[in-house]
Design a protein around this nucleic acid. Sequence first.
DNA 1: AACGGACTCAACCGCCCTCAT
DNA 2: TATGAGGGCGGTTGAGTCCGT
Length: 273
Amino acid sequence: MGRQPCCDKLGVKKGPWTAEEDKKLVNFILTHGQCCWRAVPKLAGLRRCGKSCRLRWTNYLRPDLKRGLLNEDEEQLVIDLHARLGNRWSKIAARLPGRTDNEIKNHWNTHIKKKLIKMGIDPVTHEPLKKQVSPQESTVPCDANYDQPNFNTDHDQQVLPKTSGHASSSTDNSSTTTPTENSSSVDECRSSEPNSDNDPLMSYIWSEAFLDDTSWNFQATREDFSEFGVSNSSSEDSNSPWFLDSKDLGDEFFGLSCFSDMDLSILDMSGKH
DNA sequence: AACGGACTCAACCGCCCTCAT
DNA sequence: TATGAGGGCGGTTGAGTCCGT
């Protein structure tokens, strides 16, 4: 049996998102929460695949996202977590508030991988590369912070992904102390400025002006929701799936701890359309 | 100033997992 | 228990940008 495409390919737009599309998606999700991504494009008036909407939201539009390069603490945390978890980017991202799996994956492939290789560490196994690294090569002038922390070249002390009990227990990280829990990086994450400050589009999207702008509102009706078996949760309804999700996952996971009171008030305001 | 290679990252693709029936 | 639908995840791509020559 062939696999059904995730969405009707006909008429589905691809490529970069426009500001208009972003507005529609943000407004829809703020008003109705995250539910049934397959239905979102139609209900939000978008000619996009549901998956594409989910990706756009989680990787770019989510209010709790940080922007810019990972700082040194975050990088070190990613390296440590990668040593334990491997390429499970979503698990790693869950430990870095405000960062997405895609972002971390990109950063790993473009920055960290090269740094580790330069340091003579295999980015896959986190073991020293076979080739003897010359003193010159092992000197990493711009990355003094990588000098030691978790990557002792002593094999016995390596943080290995598969073999040690340590590694296996850490996969289920709920009960394991990881660098996140003691880390300054998390605090630093939370203390950093909201991402929208650096992005004109995001600034506008999260501004009152945007929220007051009804010219682009989607036209979904209660009937449209019922068609998908989705209850049209009103904005006053605190049981919106989005809120439920964030509660289930915990504030830290979803990054809601990063919200200021102002941020949350924006969410409230969104429902007043 | 122009060109070309390197780099970055948003977005897509397709497989896998979970859950409802 | 089997099956199908939907969501999530990791790998990959390609357009845009940067940087050195």
